[in-house]
């Protein structure tokens, strides 16, 4: 690790902390391998997105205040979730007395992949991962954080995750019929609109299966939790990994 490495605070979303500790570990190890000085600030909780998306943004003032204070002393905050990152950047309620800190947080919080490509300026990773990988583009990562170009927009195509993955030796990128359709998770939507949520998830899975995805990956574990939940229930042969897990494994 370089002596002057920036201090990176890990923000691990609540459901990743509880259900997918291995994704948190992979994120931490990956950043360390890339030369970052990483800390996991204790006492961190949740960004408040589930409540805010359910219509209770006004009840997230305490959570947001706590969040801003917890992460105030670091150069960067890195999170293995596009959705939670977007929430912190765009949907935190305005916190009186912390305007400056909140503004600063908005600029220093990054989703993991964009941190690697945009801040660490890493163009390619030397590693191997000999598998057929299907990428699930999370809506908040793509349309919110612009981690990849959207099929709706007339813009030159790009995909930050793909750029990193495609350099891994042996990795085969799966081309899907619908490259960026929502999986139907949507937070509370997954339970309030259960039937639709399931149908949308099934349709995404069918696209991957039809194109022979072996490992389905993405930058948001919430989408993957939903897709994996449906695939497991219907006994489909698909493996699921977070991007951090693939990158971390391929570098070891």
């Amino acid at each position: 690790m370089k002596a002057n490495s920036p201090s990176v605070a890990l923000f691990i979303p609540c459901y990743v902390d509880q259900f997918y500790p291995q994704v948190g570990i992979a994120t931490l190890e990956l950043l360390e391998k890339l030369g970052c000085k990483v800390t996991y600030p204790s006492g961190q909780t949740c960004c408040g997105q589930p409540l805010a998306n359910a219509g209770y943004a006004r009840d997230t003032v305490g959570t947001a205040t706590h969040f801003i204070e917890t992460f105030n002393d670091y150069d960067y905050v890195v999170c293995p979730s596009g959705s939670c990152t977007l929430h912190v950047k765009e949907h935190f309620p305005a916190i009186a007395g912390l305007e400056k800190e909140q503004e600063a947080l908005g600029h220093k919080i990054y989703e993991l992949i964009e941190f690697i490509t945009d801040v660490l300026k890493i163009e390619k990773l030397e590693g191997k991962f000999p598998h057929r990988v299907g990428f699930h583009s999370s809506c908040h990562g793509q349309r919110g954080l612009h981690l990849s170009s959207g099929s709706e927009l007339n813009q030159p195509p790009y995909n930050k995750a793909r750029k990193l993955l495609e350099n891994l030796a042996g990795l085969e990128w799966v081309e899907l019929s619908r490259t960026d359709e929502c999986c139907g998770f949507g937070g509370t939507f997954a339970v309030t609109e259960e039937a639709l949520s399931i149908q949308m998830g099934k349709d995404r899975l069918a696209d991957h299966l039809e194109h022979k995805t072996e490992i389905l990956t993405g930058g948001d574990m919430s989408c993957i939790m939903h897709l994996q939940g449906i695939a497991t229930r219907s006994k489909q042969e698909l493996k699921f990994l977070h991007l951090a897990e693939i990158l971390n494994q391929s570098l070891s």
């Binding site: 809506c139 908040h140 359709e181 949507g186 937070g187 509370t188 939507f189 309030t192 609109e193 949520s197």
Partner: peptide, 8 residues
């Protein structure tokens, strides 16, 4: 609430 807020 009939949306995932996907933004498309």
């Amino acid at each position: 609430f009939a949306s995932t807020l996907c933004g498309s």
